[in-house]
Simulated assay, not measured.
Amino acid sequence: MASGFDSASSTLLCTEDNSIFDDTWRPRNNERKHHFSNPYVLPLQSEECLALMLEKECQHWHGSHYLNRLRSGNLDIGLRIEAIHWIQEVRSHFGFGPLCAYLSINYLDRFLAAYELPKGRPWTMQLLAVACLSLAAKVDETNVPPALNLQVGKAKFVFEAKTIQRMEFLVLNTLKWRMQAITPFSFIDYFLCKINGGQSPLRSLILQSIQLITSTVKGIDFLEFKPSEIAAALAMYVAGETQKTVDSGKTFSVLIQYVEKERLLKCVEMIQVLATKDSSDSIQCLPENPLNGVLDALCNKSASPQNSPDAKRRKPNETS
């Protein structure tokens, strides 16, 4: 792990690798707003694609040591929570899809697992969040506003476009340019299809799964699990909730072909707690529909210090 942004070992794809957090640039405010919308559709995966994703998912995962650092206080959980709230706020503002927000947080966690932000500079986390969201939007969205314009909502600091670009280079380099990350979204449709006997799952199951996947990033508990494990647990949970007569034993036997039994059971229990907690907010109760119903939309798919000049703090009366 790099010891900090001033480390001589840090290599960026630009000549100003150590100037990202110095005192030579001045962020400015953003006054323009854009409203974009990108419908989110889950692609169905093939057996070969699934096997490849299971093999490579650890390359896109932060690892269990990252969770241990958060729990031990080595990393500031509060700053991470603020960054995630801001990402979700901006996602809603621009109408980005749920995968875009999830990718942003995936980049942020993987970066923090591999690189140490300077201590005592809370604005660095905000800059990281802006860069990660900008990169995720470029990967997942078709209509992407300039990175400068992403700085809306309740962000405490704003940054110049060139500063965001430098941070993007740092994130890209640290993540070894692996930006097409494997996430629970990559697996959920396949697992739902498998436990439904090869038939396309209900649209309601897909939508509930998407809601729950986005809810798993609110805290840190689900950082323990790989994307495939979260997806398998979600598939088992939503199928059982939607059709109470589902053969849980058969479902379980199907899923443990892909994930470890004990970890699947533990993750399912956590999903149950999460769904109960969120039921009054975002997870709506679904009617009981037959698990072997046709998914109308998808059935045709194939396969610094706070006064640092490095970051300008918004004034109380400033608006985005």
Rank of each mutant, 00 (worst) to 15 (best):
A2P: 15
A2Y: 02
S3V: 00
F5E: 14
A8D: 04
S10M: 15
L12H: 13
T15Y: 10
N18R: 01
R28D: 01
E31F: 15
R32A: 12
H35E: 14
Y40F: 15
Y40P: 02
V41H: 04
V41F: 12
Q45F: 11
L50D: 04
L54I: 12
E55D: 08
K56L: 15
Q59M: 15
H60T: 14
W61L: 06
H62R: 07
G63P: 09
N68F: 11
R69H: 07
L70S: 08
S72K: 11
H85S: 13
S92N: 15
H93S: 11
F96K: 04
L99V: 09
A101Q: 12
L103A: 04
S104T: 14
L112S: 00
E116A: 03
L117S: 06
V130I: 05
V130G: 01
A131F: 03
C132G: 00
D140M: 13
T142S: 10
T142M: 06
V144C: 09
A147N: 03
V158R: 12
E160R: 07
I164Y: 06
Q165F: 07
F169V: 00
L172W: 05
T174Y: 02
W177F: 11
R178N: 10
Q180K: 10
A181M: 12
F185T: 04
I188H: 04
I188W: 04
G198L: 08
Q199N: 07
Q208Y: 00
T216F: 08
T216H: 05
T216R: 00
V217W: 05
L223E: 05
L223H: 06
K226A: 00
A233L: 06
L234K: 04
L234P: 04
L234E: 05
V238F: 04
E241Y: 08
Q243C: 13
S248E: 14
F252G: 09
V259H: 11
E260Y: 10
E262M: 10
R263F: 11
L264M: 07
K266W: 06
C267R: 03
E269M: 08
I271M: 15
L274F: 08
L274Y: 09
K277F: 11
S280C: 10
E288R: 09
D296M: 10
S302P: 08
A303R: 14
S304M: 12
S304Y: 13
P305W: 06
N307K: 13
